[in-house]
Amino acid sequence: MIELRGLTKRWPGADRAAVDEVTLSVPEGTSCALIGPSGSGKTTTLRMVNRLVEPSGGSLRIAGEDALKQDPVRLRRGIGYVIQEVGLFPHRSVAENVATVPRLLGWADARIKARVEEVLTLTGLDPARFAARRPHQLSGGERQRVGVARALAGDPPVLLMDEPFGAVDPVVRGRLQEEVLRLLKTLRKTVLVVTHDLEEAVRLGDAVAVLRDGRMAQHAPAAEMLARPADGFVAEFLGSDRALKRLALLPAVAARREGRAEGEALPPGASLRDALAALLARGTKAVPLADGGVATLDAVAEAGAPMSAAAAGPAGSP
């Protein structure tokens, strides 16, 4: 659980606060995506949580404890941190990079070695191939994975990520997002992730928080925010196709109707977006669902409309 209450940062000499009384809580085991235009204070907010930036006001609690009263160096060892530039230590091997926090925590060598292999495997890197390499011998995507592995190595309950997949191409990026998302869910980490990419925010965040000029514009589950932006700024930020984006977050079964249809059934766990895509691609009026019944064009439109019953209980909301 991460709780920010009225957290404020005023940089010396700045005429307005970079982060202005931001209140936000991320419940245990969920993720929150911080999003907003450039300069809106996302990085500053994130870095106040591990106290790389000292807040000028407000309070901060992590796992129920007052984080502003703790020694910052100790505090950081319990918080995973992934930055956009990755920031691997170029003079150290992948294994040594990953072992950073366990070493700081004073673990025994055997335990560190086992843990390094474990997190490398978790992040999709074969220890036999990668452990001994230097960062410059890795591709951009592999480096990002090492960055995530290093953040997870000390098994911190809380993870902070600042544009974690910024440095890789869109294809690798999508795959990394999927994998990391699944990993963080299974590990039940509490995650605060900064991004300026709405797709990424929706995909990675159970909840999304939009910042504007250092203030919280809206904080809500992704599907709810896409359905009901708090104001014109948020609506514009989410884009005119927000209703379409939202379909990806709702289950196809929300559009279930009795009946039969030709063609292959949609896979279990398919979204309304998948259903719509299949309907358009096949040029039919109905597609079969995995567990029986069909999704029809009308039903998709109805279920996907912001005021529908499905919007009140979207898939995957916290």
Binding site: N50, L52, V73, R74, L75, R76, R77, G78, Y81, I83, E85, V86, G87, L88, F89, P90, H91, T100, V101, L104, R150, A151, L160
Partner: peptide
């Protein structure tokens, strides 16, 4: 020295002395 590596070192909880000896000076 690589700003990102230094930033990561701080963010992962290395103290000033350790940072100087293990990251800054080697870099």
């Amino acid at each position: 020295a690589d700003r990102a590596a230094l930033d990561a070192a701080r963010g992962l909880g290395m103290g000033a002395v350790r940072r100087a000896l293990q990251v800054e000076l080697p870099l």
